[in-house]
Simulated assay, not measured.
Amino acid sequence: MTDDRFQRALRSLRGLAVGDALGSQFFVPVNYPLLGRRELPPGSWQWTDDTEMAGSVLAVLVAHGRIDQDALARSFAEHHDFDRGYGPAVNRMLRLIRQGGDWRELAAGLFQGQGSWGNGAAMRIAPLGAWYAGDPEQATHQAEISAYTTHQHREAVAGAMAVAAAASLAGDPAGAGGPEALLDRVISLVPRSAVQAGLRRARDMLDYADAGTVAAVLGCGRRTSAHDTVPFALWAAARHLGAFEEAFWTTAQVGGDVDTNCAIVGGVLAAAGAGAPPGEWQGRTEPLPDWVPTSG
C-alpha cells in the first residue's frame, strides 16, 4: 500500500461523510427552508449507515490491500449500529451474520432470492475507487466483489461498479478529463443494465442546468434502488468536478435519498484533492469512527 493511495481513499471517505451527514439534515422538516436558501443547518451533523459501511470498506483495504469478502461482511456486521438508518433487510442480515450466519446465503436470499437492488453497495464504495485512482478497471472489479457481500442483484452491483469507476477517474493524478469523458469511461466499464442506460441518459443531459428536470428523468433515489440513484449522482458529480459546495447544493435540492446521493457525490469529488469539502463543513461533521484507520 502506498501512502498516496491511502490518503486519496481517506480523503474520499471524509468527503463522503460530509455529504452524508449534511445531506441527512434535510430529512428534518425544520431544515427544509434552509435548503432552498442554501443555508447550513445549525449544530453538528451526524452521519448515517452510508459512512459507517464506507469505513469498513477502507478498513478492509488497509488490512488486506484488496477486498476480502469475508472480512468485509464481518466488519459490516461487527460495526453495525441499528440507529444509523439501515434498511430493515440489511439490519436483519447483519444481525444474523453476527450470530454466525453465512453472508453468501443471506445476501442471495434477500427479496425472494433476487438479491437486493438497493443503492447500499453504491453509497459506500467511492473510497475504494479513490484507492484505485487511475485504474478504473481494477476499481470496478473490486467494487463488484464488494457489492456481493450484501447486494447480489445485477443493478446493485452495476451501481457500485459505476461509482467506483467514477471515483477512480476523478482521483487520477493524470486528470479525469471533462464531464463527458468521465461518464463515457464509466459507461464503458459498467455491464449492460438499467444503471448503464441511466448513465447514458445522464451523459446526454450534461448540458441541462436544471437539476430538478434531470432528477425527474433519471430519478434521485426516491425508490432507493441503484438505477434510481447512481445516474443522477454521477451526473451531479461530473458537472461539478472540483466544486464540492456547488455539487452538494445541486444534488441536495432535488430531494429524494438526499444523504445517499450526497454521499456518492461527496466521495467521488473528494477523491481528487481539488474536490475536498469546505473546512467548516468538515469541522461540523461527526468524526469518523475510531476503528477506521486514519494513517496508512
Rank of each mutant, 00 (worst) to 15 (best):
Met1Gly: 08
Thr2Ser: 14
Thr2Trp: 02
Asp4His: 14
Ala9Gln: 09
Leu10His: 12
Arg11Tyr: 04
Arg14Asp: 00
Leu16Arg: 07
Gly19Asp: 01
Gly19Cys: 05
Ser24Cys: 05
Gln25Arg: 14
Phe27Gly: 05
Pro29Asp: 01
Asn31Pro: 15
Arg37Trp: 10
Arg38Thr: 01
Leu40Asn: 01
Pro42Tyr: 12
Pro42Trp: 13
Trp47Phe: 14
Thr48Val: 05
Met53Lys: 05
Ala59Phe: 05
Gly65Ser: 09
Asp68Lys: 10
Ser75Met: 06
His80Leu: 05
Phe82Met: 03
Val90Ala: 15
Asn91Ile: 11
Arg95Ile: 07
Asp102Pro: 15
Ala107Cys: 09
Leu110Arg: 11
Trp117Asn: 10
Gly118Ser: 11
Met123His: 06
Leu128Gly: 03
Trp131Met: 00
Ala139Leu: 04
Thr140Ala: 13
Thr140Val: 15
Ala147Asp: 02
Thr149Met: 01
Thr150Gln: 10
His151Val: 06
Met161Leu: 09
Met161Asp: 03
Met161Pro: 13
Ala162Asp: 04
Ala162Gln: 07
Ser168Gly: 05
Leu169Gln: 12
Asp172Gln: 05
Gly178Cys: 12
Ser188Gly: 15
Arg192Pro: 11
Val195Ala: 05
Gln196Ser: 10
Gln196Asp: 11
Arg201Asn: 07
Met205Ala: 14
Leu206Ser: 04
Tyr208Gly: 03
Asp210Ile: 02
Ala211Leu: 07
Thr213Asn: 07
Val217Lys: 09
Ala233Pro: 10
Ala236Phe: 11
Arg239Phe: 03
Ala243Asn: 09
Thr250Gln: 14
Ala252Met: 06
Ala252Gln: 08
Cys262Glu: 07
Ala263Gly: 14
Ile264His: 08
Val265Pro: 07
Gly266Pro: 04
Gly266Asn: 08
Ala270Val: 02
Ala271Asn: 13
Ala271Val: 04
Ala276Cys: 02
Pro277Gly: 06
Gln282Glu: 09
Arg284Ser: 04
Pro287Ser: 02
Asp290Trp: 02
Thr294Arg: 15
